[in-house]
Simulated scan of single mutants.
Amino acid sequence: MKLKLIVLSTAVTVLTSIAAQAQVVGVNKRCETDSLNVSQATGRNNWAKACGVISPRTHDFYVTDDYGRPRARPIYPTFIKGWDHTQGWIAPTTANASCNVPAGYFPNVTCQASCYTPDQKLLFAEGELAIFDAFTRKVSKIVTLDDDASLDNITYTVRDLKAYSESLVEVVHDILVVKTKSGGSLKVTPNHPLLLSTGQMRNAEDIQIGDSLIAESGEFDEITAIEEIEFFGKVYNVEPNSNGEHEVILNGQIVVAQGFLSGSMYYQNTGFNHVNKYLLRDTLPDDLI
């Protein structure tokens, strides 16, 4: 299904699935108190495998993507006491560490990233919805860029949602409020990827005043202010299902948030290596070259 849209008035993973609208949508949780870098996450996985906490098959899933390639940001287990998300134990990050796990703690969740405040509106198949409302209802169809979309031909398609993500607990988050010349506004965490008018995917913390976001219509909208605020609560994100035969279709991981083209949580995790690249560079209009 292809749509030509006009402007509308517009990291912990729980390994469960929830049926919604005849579509199974994964539910991911985001941990803030056990955030690891790539080296630490790799060490955690190696420790968990060596200690029998996870199986070799699970270890392979955590460190490689659907196509057998190393994940740019590995998934890794974190420990909580039963299902009390407020009680956590920080497990080792080296393979040769002790295998002793405190009584009552289990690797019930695995870590990932996520980054919209709950009031931010994304474009789903049924229209614009606050991400918290869509998450609560487990809405299963979302609008993304079409496979063949380019900077001078912004077109869209509807895809299944592979997963939502939600913070594990309410904490204080650093949030960037990005404001544009047209009056638009977008609230995201600093590591949230946004698509610029150059065709480059860039984290919000690396965007500057004077850069331009891409509006839903394809128009460029100059950034006039970037404000830093604190937000107490949970943050959310989505990951569409855009798996191709041999690799993920990158356009399928670009959604519409608050009326602007924005990267999914794929670009914060498995597809992190695509951040700062020019995803649509080959189709730049002549007047931008």
Rank of each mutant, 00 (worst) to 15 (best):
F232S: 13
G252L: 01
Q268E: 11
Q253C: 08
S217E: 05
E222P: 04
K181S: 11
I226P: 03
I249C: 02
S217G: 06
N241T: 08
Y278W: 12
Y164A: 05
L280C: 02
D206I: 09
T198K: 06
Y266P: 04
N191T: 15
F260I: 07
G210D: 02
D174K: 14
E170S: 15
L161P: 04
I209D: 01
V171R: 12
F231G: 00
S167Y: 06
N251Y: 03
K179I: 05
P240V: 07
D211E: 06
N276Q: 11
I175L: 05
T189H: 02
K179V: 08
G263K: 05
E227R: 08
V256C: 01
F220P: 08
V256R: 02
G233W: 01
A225E: 12
S185L: 05
G218V: 01
L279Q: 10
E219H: 14
K179D: 06
V256T: 07
E170A: 15
G218H: 05
N203D: 12
D211N: 12
F232M: 11
G183T: 04
A204G: 06
V188A: 02
R159L: 10
A163N: 12
N241C: 02
F272W: 12
V177A: 03
S262A: 14
P240Y: 03
F220K: 15
G263H: 04
S242V: 09
N241R: 13
I226V: 07
E166R: 14
K162H: 13
V172E: 10
L168D: 13
S185A: 08
I226T: 04
I254E: 00
G259W: 02
G244I: 06
V238W: 01
L168K: 14
F272N: 15
E222I: 10
N276E: 07
V169G: 03
S264Y: 01
V172H: 06
S167G: 12
V177W: 01
H192Y: 13
A257S: 12
E227P: 02
I226D: 00
G184W: 00
L279M: 14
A257D: 04
F260K: 11
V255P: 03
E205H: 14
V188L: 00
D221T: 11
S242Y: 00
Y278A: 15
G263C: 01
M201A: 10
I249P: 04
Y266V: 08
G263T: 07
E166F: 09
I249W: 01
D221H: 06
L176M: 09
E227M: 05
E230Q: 12
I175M: 05
E247G: 09
N241H: 12
L168G: 14
L176C: 02
H173K: 10
M265S: 15
R202E: 08
G210S: 09
L168C: 15
I207A: 01
E228S: 15
F231S: 02
L279A: 10
S197A: 14
L213V: 13
Q208K: 15
F220S: 15
A215Y: 06
A163Q: 11
G233C: 03
K162T: 11
S182R: 09
V238L: 03
S262I: 08
S182A: 13
N273W: 10
G210P: 01
G218Q: 00
L195Q: 07
D174V: 10
Q268D: 07
F231K: 04
T270N: 09
E216G: 04
L196Y: 06
L186V: 13
L196W: 00
V178F: 01
L161G: 08
Y267P: 05
I214T: 08
G184C: 09
S167I: 07
S185Y: 00
L196R: 05
